[in-house]
Amino acid sequence: MSCADCGNIAKEAREIVAEVGSEPEKVIPLLQEIQNRHGYLSQELVEAVAEEIKLPVSRLYGVATFYSQFRFEPIGKNLIKVCKGTACHVAGAEKVYSIISEKLGIEEGETTDDQLFTLESVACLGCCSLAPVVMINDSIYGKLNPAKMGKILKEYADGK
């Protein structure tokens, strides 16, 4: 990171704080705004926001690491969320997950080397009648099996 960026980061931190608020109760909304903008919590921006609201960085990280919503690494082009809710579990979510993990060579929370896919599992996407379900970016794919999942992955890999 060059220091030309430092000024930009401080500027963005001020923007975020102006938008969300600077009270200690706004820590979660502030972190959510950082993640909305960048897809993850970049250390530089978290530090800059902490400075802006005059709270120790540890306080922000203490909160961020508690909640599963927050990520600390950039995500790939396609974010795959495998639902592991109960309905999906009994319908075979594990098999769907294994196939993705096997084909892409990544585990939960990891991103492929070509930055094309990030794999996550989530507790419930709330469309249990379609179980097992996977969400890729904003699209939901339901009633999956390993073969179907393989095809969908290929479509994305081919540049969908």
């Binding site: 200690p24 109760e25 820590v27 972190l31 959510q32 203490g62 909640y67 599963s68 919503q69 507790a123």
Partner: peptide, 22 residues
């Protein structure tokens, strides 16, 4: 907005979360 923690369904945990804490 909650940030993904099942325990926040417990009322005292939920209140701590609204207050901006773990």
């Amino acid at each position: 907005l909650g940030a993904g923690a099942f325990v926040c369904g417990e009322e005292t945990a939920l209140l701590r979360s609204i207050e901006g804490n773990r």
